[in-house]
Simulated scan of single mutants.
Amino acid sequence: MHDPDPAFGPLARDGLVDRVAGLMAEAIVAGRVLPGARLSESTIARDLGVSRAPVREAARLLENSGLVRYRPNRGFFVRTLSSAALDNLYEFRIVIESAAIARLVARGDVEALLPRLDAQIAELYRVAEAGDDMLRQVEADMAFHRLICEGSGNPRYLAAFDQIANETKLGLMLIGRLYDSPRRMAGSHVPIRAAIAARDAQGATAAIEDHIGSARHMVTERFRSLEEGHPA
C-alpha cells in the first residue's frame, strides 16, 4: 500500500546520491524514521521519485557515518544507539576537538574566525529564544563546533567531525534535551570563544574538554536512564 504520509518527497536528479543521503539523514535525526526501523529501498525510491540504486548508495554513505547498519540478506536499518556507544563517541569528539582547537589557536586565522563564532553564538541564543525546536538547537550547536574544526586548518579534523556529526545529532535528539534550558546551552559556548580570542591554547583546550565532557556525562546518563526504562 502507498503510505498516505510518506517521509520523503520527489527529488530532482542533480547531485542525486548526496541529496538522497542528506534527506535520509535528516529524516532519521528528526525522528521521522525511528531507530531499529528498516529502510525500504523501494519505498524511499518511490517517495523520492528515483531508482533504487541512488538510495542504496546513499544508505552506504549513512552506514559510514554511523546512522544505519547493514544486515546481510535483510537490508539497511536505522542504528539503535546505546549509552556505551555514545560515551565512546563523545570520548572521540574530545580527542578531535581538543587537537583542532589547539591547532586553531597556534596556527589558525583567529581574527577571521571570531566573527563567525560570534554569529553562531548569536544564532544559538536566537534559537533558544524562538522556542523548543530541539533539532534547530542541536544543528546550531554542531555548527559552532564544526567552525572550530574548519578553522584549525587541518582537513582531517573536519572530515572526522563531519563523519560523526549525524550520529551525535541522533543521540541528542533521542534524549530530547541536553541542558535544562536552551539559553544555558547557548551560553556554554562563550568560554570557548573567549579562550580562542585570548589565543590561550591551554585555556581553549580546557574549555572544549570541559564543555564536551559535561555533555558526555549528561548524554550518557540520560541515555542510560532511557535504557533502564526511566525517561526522567
Rank of each mutant, 00 (worst) to 15 (best):
V20K: 05
V55I: 10
L34I: 09
A186D: 04
G203D: 04
T43P: 03
A102P: 04
D87P: 00
I192T: 12
A186R: 01
T220N: 02
I192Q: 11
N73M: 14
D3N: 15
S82D: 00
F76A: 10
P4T: 00
A215W: 05
E139P: 06
A27D: 10
A197T: 01
L11S: 12
M173Q: 09
L11W: 14
P6E: 05
G66E: 09
H189A: 14
I164Y: 03
A30F: 07
A112D: 12
V127H: 07
A106F: 06
G22D: 12
G22M: 13
I101P: 06
A143S: 12
G108V: 07
F8G: 09
A206G: 02
G66A: 06
T205G: 07
C149V: 04
R193K: 14
E150Y: 08
R177P: 03
L39S: 01
R216W: 03
P182K: 11
F77I: 02
I96Q: 09
A27H: 06
R183H: 15
S40F: 04
R146G: 13
R74Y: 13
T205N: 05
R46K: 13
D3Y: 02
A106G: 00
L16W: 11
A143D: 10
L174D: 01
V55C: 07
R46S: 13
A122S: 14
D47M: 04
Y125A: 06
P191K: 09
D133Y: 04
R184S: 11
A58F: 11
D180N: 04
D3M: 01
G31L: 08
V68E: 08
R216H: 10
R13F: 15
H189V: 04
D200F: 06
E111I: 00
L67P: 05
F77Y: 15
E150F: 09
Y157A: 06
V219D: 00
R52N: 11
A12H: 15
R224P: 04
L147I: 00
G213V: 04
E139A: 04
E91F: 01
S51V: 08
A84V: 08
A140K: 07
T43C: 04
G75Y: 09
L89T: 00
I94N: 05
R126S: 13
V68R: 05
I164N: 02
V219Q: 01
G108E: 09
I96V: 14
H2Y: 11
A195K: 15
D14Y: 15
L114D: 02
